[in-house]
Nucleic acid binder design. Structure first.
Length: 284
DNA sequence: ATGGTTGTCATACAA
């Protein structure tokens, strides 16, 4: 056997798919860590955010040489940037603008016919604006931009119905929507990423798009789940003041196929780490 | 209440 695609039947139909999301905070600086993760976790698809890399400088070869031959990128100089690395071919790819800015914060791919039972699956990769420090849209235009972006995600879910077919939405959504998505609900209530208005808007986007929060379905509250720990902590392990900012949602028709999710916490302790860790979901 | 770190690109700015 030795299939590169994980669990396959004899006809080659895809029986299982593992998808991962990771805010890498510079793909060029951390290409080595991406390769380490790909070799260890072996996802079929990895969605990256904050690549901080113009498309003509993206290190395609680093990932092609270890089996990720299908790569879709939408990057810009210095800031933002998203990418999809895949062992499976794409039929199409596209990018969408949100909240009236040309920021590279979204890319989607559709799997080709070779993907067996998951042929046609659409993967949306998002990088929602962080929103600055002050949780007031009047005083802080970055927060206003974040709220507008979340509102537009809701409208998109309602109007374009991206989850009306087999689809997965992943990314750094920069909101920890549930009480147990932060180390202290009480101490985080006025901190950007966990304010009620952001949580409400993210939940409205899930609802209007008929998405299912796959990670929380498999690991329900009150278990605390974090995917990000600040660089500013003197000791991130000891303080453990994390937040769940990185998410994987699936369309309703995939909700019965959720098999396993993992938050790769160890990656936060790797050398020169990103402040986010990878999250994986397996559907079968 | 404050400052704490990191990456990019060159000096502050975003996170």
């Amino acid at each position: 056997m030795g299939s590169a695609l994980g669990l396959n039947d004899q006809a080659g139909a895809l029986m299982a798919l593992t998808i991962a999301t990771w805010n890498i905070n510079s793909v060029r600086l951390r290409s080595g860590l991406v390769q380490k993760f790909l070799k260890e976790a072996k996802p079929d698809i990895l969605c990256l955010q904050e690549t901080k890399c113009p498309d003509d400088q993206f290190p395609h070869g680093d990932f092609r040489k270890i089996g990720y031959g299908h790569i879709a990128v939408s990057g810009q100089k210095g800031y933002h940037g998203v990418a999809v690395l895949s062992r499976l071919p794409f039929a199409t790819q596209s990018v969408k603008q949100f909240a009236g800015k040309a920021d590279c914060r979204h890319i989607s791919v559709e799997l080709s016919e070779n993907a067996g039972s998951l042929a046609g699956l659409v993967v949306h990769n998002f990088y929602v604006p962080a929103g600055g420090d002050i949780p007031d849209p009047e005083a802080n235009e970055k927060f206003a931009h974040k709220l507008a972006f979340l509102d537009e995600m809701k409208q998109w879910g309602k109007k374009d119905k991206p989850a009306s077919k087999k689809a997965v939405l992943v990314g750094d959504l920069n909101v920890a929507p549930l009480e147990h998505d932060v180390w202290s609900h009480k101490q985080m209530i006025d901190v950007v990423s966990h304010t009620p208005i952001e949580c409400d808007k993210l939940n409205a986007a899930i609802k209007s798009g008929k998405w299912v929060d796959a990670v929380r379905t498999l690991k329900p509250e009150p278990e605390k789940l974090f995917t990000w720990w600040s660089y500013r902590a003197a000791d991130w392990v000891a303080s453990n003041r994390g937040r769940r900012l990185d998410h994987i949602w699936v369309s309703e028709d995939l909700a019965g196929s959720l098999k396993k999710t993992e938050i790769h916490r160890d990656a936060r302790g790797w050398e020169r780490p990103s402040d986010h860790v990878p999250v994986t979901l397996t559907i079968a």
